[in-house]
Design a protein around this nucleic acid. Structure first.
Lengths: 226, 226
DNA sequence: GTACGATGTTACCGAAATGTCACCCCGGCG
DNA sequence: CGCCGGGGTGACATTTCGGTAACATCGTAC
């Protein structure tokens, strides 16, 4: 489970980073808005913890940018006594907030709660419609059909598509999520991966019912009724 | 994304220029009214940041001149304690203002907010009247009619036309927005693109109701009633 | 080392998107 | 009238995109 933490205070950043990685999370960090957006695009974290006051913008900007692409849980950090920020945060689509100062223990509890609420709890499976993907064992259940064993890359591809079910996910975003910065620009990799995945999960790979192509835009998975 | 910044203080100009280009914007500058107008005409920026007190005129003049041609977001800069200026600024058609001194962080946040509001920031959907364009999935909804699938170029064309709904967008600006500097000067490309787009979105492509031609100037989209 | 599955690479096909060209219509003008 | 110039239109060429297959390479279990 990968978490993005954005704060301009390096002390707080390392403290929080330490606490979270102690608990088994992978933590990626950023100190300002532009780098946060870069990291978000490059790493596709599963949850974001955003400070509101940042050099070069505010956590609101990051939150909005994230919401345009993703439904991952977002937690905002605010200084004491800026309650009006909270309204705006929740308005923009944040899922929770925490008032500084806070204890690592509190943070951890909130993070776990968020992950549980959003169904991304570590090790668990993500379910959308009649699709259920187990991220640990790399097994996919499609309706009542026998489970399918997937490869690492296939799982990552499905993960991001399911996390954005109903929305188109752009080619470039898929590439960076599955392969990281390396695969950037290489559509061929994606073509092949989609091709192979379809052969595993589609009844008729020639007429995909699950993993749809959006010409010129990317790919999409809709809620499928069993 | 290209921004025009006009201020007579070279220090402020370079500071702001630095902050903005750090965040990935292209910045063009001017120090007085005449050069600002020249630069605006030559560069077709997507947003303008105008100081009010300028040698040889005021930011109001620039704002008015811009408003005659374009609907791009305009932000005015004012010195502290000149609130009556603000009224006039908003009256004239400015979209936002900032009181000096301000932090680069604040400026950046406001600029982003403006771009987002005007639909020029990537991502999301933009709606004008009964037209709704989804920039991610390249789909356009026209009133209650079935959605239309657009191509990348068609989407870009509509994007800039919708962002300037109600105003004529000049040929040259359309060309550079859709094709980048490459297509500069090639009106044939634009003719074809408009032609093809009209066939997709107009009831009678021969008598366009949505995408209107402004002979000698460019094209325009008005608010269409549902 | 060998065998096997996973992944990366290259090539080809057909369709769609885009670019290019030739010609039309129309209004202004000498 | 014939000659522009701006736009519109249709036909066609070229490029890009997505799907598919075949083969190469890599890593790991045995």
């Amino acid at each position: 489970m990968k978490l993005l933490v954005v704060d301009d205070d390096p002390d707080l950043l390392s403290l929080v980073g330490f606490a979270l990685s102690q608990s088994g999370f992978v933590v990626v960090k950023a100190v300002d808005v532009p780098s946060a957006l870069r990291v978000f695009a490059a790493e596709s974290p599963d949850l974001a913890i955003l400070d509101i006051n940042l050099p070069g913008g505010s956590g609101f900007d990051i939150c909005e940018a994230i919401r345009k692409q993703s439904r991952i849980p977002v937690m905002m950090l605010t200084a004491r006594g800026e309650e009006e920020d909270l309204v705006r945060a929740l308005d923009i689509g944040a899922d929770d907030y925490l008032t500084k100062p806070f204890s690592p223990r509190t943070l951890l509890a909130r993070v776990r709660a968020l992950l549980r609420r959003s169904g991304l709890e570590s090790g668990g499976a993500m379910t959308v419609g009649s699709l259920s993907l187990d991220l640990e064992s790399l097994v996919l259940h499609v309706g009542a059909a026998p489970p399918v064993k997937l490869t690492k890359l296939e799982t990552r591809l499905l993960q991001i598509l399911l996390a954005n079910a109903g929305h188109v996910v752009g080619t470039e975003r898929l590439l960076t999520h599955v392969w990281g910065h390396r695969g950037s620009g290489d559509r061929q990799l994606l073509k092949q991966l989609v091709h192979r995945l379809r052969h595993k999960i589609e009844v008729d790979p020639g007429l995909p019912k699950v993993l749809k192509t959006e010409p010129g835009a990317g790919y999409r998975i809709d809620e499928v009724q069993a």
